[in-house]
Simulated scan of single mutants.
Amino acid sequence: MATDVLAKEGISGLRVEVLAKRCGVTKGSFYWHFKDRQALLDAVLERWRAGRIRDIEKTTAVQPGHEREQLHYAIEVYGASRNRKGMSIELAIRDWARRDANAAGVVESVDLYRLECTRRLFTASGMSDSEAKSRSLLLYACVFGLSLMHYDGFDNNLLEIKQRIAQRIVET
């Protein structure tokens, strides 16, 4: 419930009174689960962090020798999926992180983990560490950038364009 409110209203929507009412519980019941609003915010951040870590681990898990295929898969998953709710949550968390050091630390840890997982795939596929780092950053800049853009009218064959982009990111 809290992440839905965060996605729609931002951090300002995460108020105890409002959430208790939406959940159909009293404020006292709410405080039974969370010591205070900060505990709620910490729980929201932890749930987001844990979900993103699980997601990237699933997306980058690979059998040795199939690293490039897994990189293509990661680009496809993150680049093809236009999950508006997920992107709304991601944007709300990132907006929160612009104003809150704790949220910024969580976002940075997730971003670094994402980059490290794909860096390992790139190095396992034969790239130098510096090349793997630059490709990891390029991969995420591309997929996050595409997820923020509205480009359906740009070309009639967007799937082919995305495949060519992925090829350029992954191949040596």
Rank of each mutant, 00 (worst) to 15 (best):
V143K: 04
V106Q: 04
Q167P: 07
I161F: 09
L138G: 07
L148K: 11
F144A: 08
D100A: 07
E131M: 15
M127Y: 15
P64Y: 06
N156Y: 12
I93D: 03
M127T: 14
Y73K: 13
L158T: 08
V106I: 03
I161L: 08
H72T: 04
S109L: 01
D152K: 12
E108V: 05
S109Y: 00
S109M: 06
Q63K: 15
D152R: 12
A166F: 03
G79Q: 00
R120S: 06
L148T: 10
V170A: 02
G79Y: 01
K162H: 10
L71R: 02
S136A: 12
L158R: 06
G65M: 09
R135W: 02
Y113R: 05
R135K: 15
C142M: 14
E131D: 15
A97H: 03
A97C: 07
Y140N: 05
A132G: 13
A103F: 01
A97Q: 04
L91A: 10
R82K: 13
G65H: 00
N83V: 06
H150T: 15
S125A: 10
V170G: 02
E90K: 11
L138M: 14
G65A: 04
I161G: 03
E108Y: 05
S88C: 08
D100Y: 06
A141N: 09
V107A: 03
Y78K: 11
L91D: 08
S147Y: 06
E108I: 00
R114V: 09
R120Q: 12
R164M: 02
M127Q: 15
Q70F: 07
S134T: 15
R135A: 11
T118D: 01
L71V: 00
A80P: 03
K85N: 14
S134G: 12
A80E: 11
W96C: 04
K162C: 04
L91P: 07
S147T: 13
Y78Q: 12
N102R: 15
C117D: 02
G79K: 00
A166R: 02
R98C: 11
A104N: 04
L159P: 01
S130Q: 13
A103E: 04
L115H: 13
Q167S: 11
I165S: 01
H66T: 13
I169K: 00
E69K: 11
R120I: 04
L91Y: 09
T118G: 04
I161Q: 07
Q167C: 11
L112D: 04
S136Y: 03
L112Q: 08
E131K: 15
R135D: 00
D155M: 10
R120W: 02
V106K: 06
R119H: 10
R114T: 05
S109Q: 07
R68P: 00
R114F: 10
A101L: 08
L121Q: 08
T118I: 09
N102M: 14
Q70E: 10
